[in-house]
Amino acid sequence: MPDNPQVVLKITDLVKSFDSTKVLKGINLTVGHREVTVIIGPSGCGKSTLLRCLNGLEPIDSGQIELNGQLITAPGTNWSAIRQKIGMVFQNYELFPHLNVIDNILLGPVKVQGRPRQEAIIDAQSWLDRVGLKDRALSFPRQLSGGQKQRVAIVRALCMSPQIMLFDEVTASLDPEMVREVLDVMLNLAKGGLTMLIVTHEMAFARAVADRIIFMDDGHIVETAQPEAFFNNPETERARRFLNIFQFQELERRRA
């Protein structure tokens, strides 16, 4: 397990409500350089909201978020600059349907970061190659399968050279046979030392990829543990129940 002293992301006492419902009730979390943190928990526990707060898609009520030592929750934060350092991949891919694959990827590096187009293309091509989509640069999103779209979306975020990547249930909309190709890409990124914060319902994947598991319930972090320890012997009753339900669902699926 990497025990790197360099902290990329530090979240302190983060609170967030929608109207009168508190969704995050004081989250404290630190993510180290090259660390892969996986957040799991029941639907509505606040895990997706937590990710969305980190790059400013949701305004927060109170608390602090620091990215590489820089406070990003102060008023007047330049979110465009911050978001370039935080890559995000969504459940429904959200490729831009009117742009082909390469233009989807280049929009950020060229228009936002002002990198020379040729240089960015070389970068994009090499990433596409690595995720197995070398010959898809000129395809439009509608010509791709879900798994291919999601791999392009990952490359689009990576080409901004982010310091951390957020994955928000990125396989939840995929047909089962396409889940694997996306998870394989993420496993490789983890091996390559990318700092990642992943929200997922894929327990086997979580176990395989994580340096650390965060279990959330009802707006709190209930348990933080090494993956083996968490899945074999969860400390809290709440986590045990959650894992039981998942095992039951697995059994159901196999019977069906």
Binding site: N55, G56, L57, W79, S80, A81, R83, Q84, I86, G87, M88, F90, N92, E94, L95, F96, L107, G108, K111, V112, Q113, R156, A157, M160
Partner: peptide, 16 residues
């Protein structure tokens, strides 16, 4: 809304 969020999350500014 999510298309707009996708644009924002690669750092696009309002006009872009």
């Amino acid at each position: 809304r999510s298309q707009i969020e996708a644009g924002l999350s690669i750092g696009l500014r309002r006009f872009q």
